[in-house]
Amino acid sequence: MTLARLDEVLADAVSEGRGVGAFNVIQLEHAEALVAAAERTGLPVVLQISENAVRYHGSLAPIALATKAVAASVSVPCVLHLDHAQSEALVEEAIGLGFTSVMFDASRLDDDTNRRTTRRVVDHCHGSGVSVEAELGEIGGKDGVHAPGVRTDPADAARFVTDTGVDALAVAVGSSHAMSSRTARLDLALIAAIHERVPVPLVLHGSSGVADADLVAAVRAGMTKVNIATHLNAVFTAALREFLDAHPTVVDTRTYLGASRTAVADEAARLLELLAGR
């Protein structure tokens, strides 16, 4: 199947009142698990490759092309998404590799430069048929830059979308990146207020720290794209540890990575259905 654009997938979700799961790909096993979950549930999925993952692999193309090939093998819509890209050169490379969406993160720049740079990226990506997500308010707890307690102002968010032309907006409403416990408290009233003012779908970053009931409530309040990475990494690692503890003499990597892949597929399928309101 041809990869889907993020704006189209999110537009369908908004019209149907459901959320869309966006999960990070680090190894090939992640891509296989996430696509299997999408196929099992019949729901779209956003396959996210972050700039951090690119640094881990040393380049974008190998993991991107492998993920693209896995996504092309199924009938459900899959978005190939470059996540938290700060480099315009990396965005350009992603376009050339066939990505259908990028999250351009210029939030570390001053506000005027963020808007101006993001507008330039949006114009270029739209000319290539690629959707763009961006970030205005800082999301707590990442690299010491995103300050805890920061919240997005609805009026400022609306102006940012007008100034930049982005297709989706990540907002700060109480979650934090890389949380290993699901104890975040979302400001549901703020989500609803931003949703009322902002004409594009909203994105929740740091969703690994949010409990199931609050994820459902966030979607009902107006959130559409929900990013979950750390939680699935914990599932992957727990399954690997459990398998190796039970089979201490195993050396075939396919056995324990296969167990992790199955565990991630099961949890991703559960999350996709949860966000879809099933």
Results as ranks from 00 to 15, higher is better:
residue 13 A to G: 09
residue 243 F to E: 15
residue 253 T to E: 15
residue 143 D to E: 15
residue 274 L to Y: 11
residue 198 V to A: 01
residue 114 N to D: 05
residue 147 A to C: 08
residue 66 A to L: 12
residue 218 A to L: 03
residue 258 G to E: 13
residue 63 I to V: 14
residue 160 F to H: 10
residue 101 S to C: 06
residue 181 S to L: 05
residue 26 I to M: 07
residue 233 N to Q: 08
residue 89 A to Y: 13
residue 23 F to I: 02
residue 246 A to E: 14
residue 208 S to V: 00
residue 147 A to G: 10
residue 223 M to I: 15
residue 106 A to L: 03
residue 105 D to Y: 08
residue 69 A to D: 14
residue 270 R to A: 09
residue 82 L to P: 14
residue 47 L to G: 03
residue 248 P to C: 06
residue 126 H to R: 15
residue 173 V to W: 02
residue 159 R to L: 09
residue 9 V to Y: 02
residue 249 T to V: 05
residue 185 R to P: 01
residue 239 A to G: 11
residue 245 D to C: 10
residue 192 A to N: 10
residue 94 A to R: 14
residue 269 A to C: 11
residue 152 T to K: 12
residue 141 G to W: 01
residue 112 D to F: 14
residue 129 G to E: 09
residue 149 G to S: 12
residue 61 A to S: 14
residue 234 A to Y: 07
residue 157 A to M: 04
residue 142 K to Y: 07
residue 35 V to E: 04
residue 274 L to Q: 10
residue 209 G to L: 02
residue 212 D to S: 04
residue 216 V to T: 08
residue 262 T to S: 14
residue 117 T to W: 12
residue 211 A to S: 03
residue 185 R to S: 11
residue 121 V to R: 12
residue 63 I to M: 14
residue 167 D to G: 04
residue 93 E to V: 12
residue 108 R to P: 03
